[in-house]
Computed example of a mutant assay.
Amino acid sequence: MVHPCAVLGFLAAVLPLVATPGASLALLVQHVTDNGRRQALPVILGTATGLYVHAALAVAGLSALVMHSGRAFTTVKVVGAVYLVGLGLWTWRSASAPARAPARRRLSARPDSVYVQALLANVLNPKAASIYLTLAPQFIDADAAFGSQVLALATAHALLMTLWLLAWTGLVRRASHVLRKPRFKRLAARATAVMLLALGVRTVAT
């Protein structure tokens, strides 16, 4: 197992990345604002699952192949960017849709749909993969089992991300009297759309 001090060091290293607004936070704010705090759970589960996917790929060496192959890495970046841009455009369109279309809004609030959105937003982010290829190895003991150490770091990372998203859920929930106003919902959804579009463009540009 990885040493506790190594876990703490890893958490300190990823904390700035966790605190940086990204697709997971954007989805959390949007869905909690629209449908209540229960929608935070599928976002958190999807994000955590994505972290474990990256950790598993790192152990299997697949992520290393992508990171060291320019063409494969570019492909992942483009696919992730297209997904984020598409999700951003869909979110903007949903915010602009008339209130007489409740069926579409109910469909968008399904937990499994929200989970998949959060999962794909994380899995298709090559920068998340790079954490387990460049950062995590700095905290791993070469003489111990590699897989179990990566799993421990991924679990710590997932717990930190969960706490961060739960904190935001509480903030959004406290402001629910403002957030539930139709005008604010439209503004929040459009802000989420802009953030997702910006993330998609940044993914390709960097």
Rank of each mutant, 00 (worst) to 15 (best):
A103D: 11
G88W: 00
A142F: 05
T75R: 04
V116M: 13
G9R: 08
Q39Y: 06
H177P: 04
T192H: 03
P42T: 13
R183V: 15
G200Q: 02
W164F: 13
Q149E: 09
D34P: 02
R173M: 08
L197V: 13
K181L: 15
I131A: 01
V204F: 00
T20A: 15
P4G: 11
Y132D: 07
R105D: 11
L166F: 02
V201N: 00
Q117M: 15
W164N: 06
V123T: 08
A99W: 00
A40H: 07
L17C: 07
R106A: 13
A205L: 12
T47C: 11
A23K: 02
L124I: 09
K127N: 08
F184Y: 15
A136Q: 03
A95W: 00
R180W: 01
V43R: 04
A175Y: 04
R93G: 00
H177Y: 11
A99D: 12
L153W: 00
R186A: 14
R104F: 05
A154D: 03
L120H: 09
N125W: 05
A6P: 05
M1F: 03
R174W: 10
L15N: 11
L41E: 08
T155H: 01
A198T: 12
V82E: 00
N122D: 08
L165P: 00
F73H: 14
H54V: 06
A60V: 09
L51W: 03
T49N: 01
V66H: 01
L159I: 14
V32H: 04
D112G: 12
R183K: 13
K185Y: 07
L171S: 06
W90E: 01
G80N: 06
A129P: 00
L196P: 01
A154W: 05
K77I: 03
G80C: 04
A72E: 11
M195V: 14
A109Q: 10
L65P: 00
N35V: 09
G9A: 14
V18M: 09
T33V: 12
P98G: 05
L15K: 07
L51G: 03
A198E: 02
L153R: 01
A154H: 00
M67N: 07
L160N: 04
A152R: 01
S130Q: 05
L27T: 08
T206C: 03
S113T: 14
T206P: 01
R38A: 15
L160E: 10
Y115Q: 11
G9E: 15
W164D: 10
M161D: 05
A60T: 10
N125L: 08
L153T: 04
L179R: 02
L107C: 07
K127S: 09
A60L: 14
R186M: 15
S108Y: 05
T134V: 14
R180I: 13
Q39W: 04
W90A: 11
P4C: 12
R71Q: 14
R71L: 15
F146M: 12
V79D: 03
V178K: 03
P102Y: 01
H3I: 08
K181R: 15
L151M: 12
V18E: 13
L133V: 08
L15P: 05
H54W: 12
